[in-house]
Design a protein around this nucleic acid. Sequence first.
DNA 1: TTATTTTTTTAGATTTGTCTAAATATTAAT
DNA 2: ATTAATATTTAGACAAATCTAAAAAAATAA
Lengths: 223, 223
Amino acid sequence: MKYSSSKENYIKAIFHLQQEQENVTTNALAEALQTRPASVTDMLKKLKTQKLLQYEKYRGVKLTAEGKRVAIQIIRKHRLWEYFLVEKLLFGWEEVHDIAEELEHISSKKLIDRLDAFLDFPQRDPHGDPIPDSSGRIPALQQSAVSDMPLNSSGTVNGISDQSAEMLELLKHKNIQLGTRLEVKKKFKADGSVEIKMRSQQPVNISEHVAKNLLVSYDNKNK
Amino acid sequence: MKYSSSKENYIKAIFHLQQEQENVTTNALAEALQTRPASVTDMLKKLKTQKLLQYEKYRGVKLTAEGKRVAIQIIRKHRLWEYFLVEKLLFGWEEVHDIAEELEHISSKKLIDRLDAFLDFPQRDPHGDPIPDSSGRIPALQQSAVSDMPLNSSGTVNGISDQSAEMLELLKHKNIQLGTRLEVKKKFKADGSVEIKMRSQQPVNISEHVAKNLLVSYDNKNK
DNA sequence: TTATTTTTTTAGATTTGTCTAAATATTAAT
DNA sequence: ATTAATATTTAGACAAATCTAAAAAAATAA
């Protein structure tokens, strides 16, 4: 089955919002898609008749198994294209999102499987998010926010929750990127900020906001 | 300026039809785009207000300089993607057209220029058609149809006019592809068919239709 | 629990790209 | 130079995706 780009965007947004909350509200969707609640209601009705989601008016929405399947395929495409753009075409990781938003709607399954093979079956996209495989399986990801790391533990950055251009900008400025190794030196109760040290650099302070958004895989026991 | 996929398809079709005939008719466009003449008329009016073409009712249509510029950029994208699909993703040259039809509407100029560099600035797509460069220049192409080659001359296949799936199928069957070297052995006046010989193969006969569609660059003077 | 605020839906329009059927213009044929 | 055939355009309609404004339902607060 083929769906319009617009429908695919709805499916994808619902999938992402469902990670936070089982039941997705009309307003949350309107916000995520930068559209009006009335438009969301209209579209939900259409997607319901296509059995991509369960929807009862005023009761919010939830993807069906089929809806999830579709969402994961779109996410797979998005992340593989991002990987391609960064690894092969040498884009910066902060500039690939918008282009991938377009590329993810190209329909050929064969294309994406060939691309996957060409890229040698990467597990993570440039932002550290896992890339679903051809059959929709998503590589397990055990990560925690810097804010939750114990003192003196170290880890490797492998994801960020808030991937806005502004946040990526800030991280670039602080010299933090995927794969960056860091150690938690101090945690300030006062404002939730954290002092971290990266290899061959002076310690730097990151705000609570950043500490909560920066995801790392870390080796639990000390440095 | 960004245009819808539909508009881009019209622009591209007009550009191609203009190679045959300066002035493009409504019916020819409807045929090329697999749509109705009435729809063509509607669209031509819209494209005219965007100054992409000159159009007077009942008088046919012609692209403006801007229209041509847009057309060439779309063609550039189409052919670069085809090259990518064949060279990097190992698709057969007969299966890439439809996928490229989708990819050609991805808007990022930076993407296509990076792709061009990644592919090492190819001059021809997998069907032998020239790839316009970043500024819209099209590499000169001196080629002639097999039907026009003198007896005993040889040449290298570098293009085909009729790129329908059926024709590509037939050529594949006859073992003819881009880069194939061939020699004209006999020309039959009766039906216009031509006997050609390819390296380490028995001579084969191709119909007038095929001979007219098979383009080669050839070394004028005999074998 | 009633009133107020917030969320969601409905009703009715709009835009883009398409269609059919009918009308009109152009071209070709007698 | 009419007539017949063909090509093109107009008129009116439709589906998809969106919008605004108003109505209705649900959640929250007094």
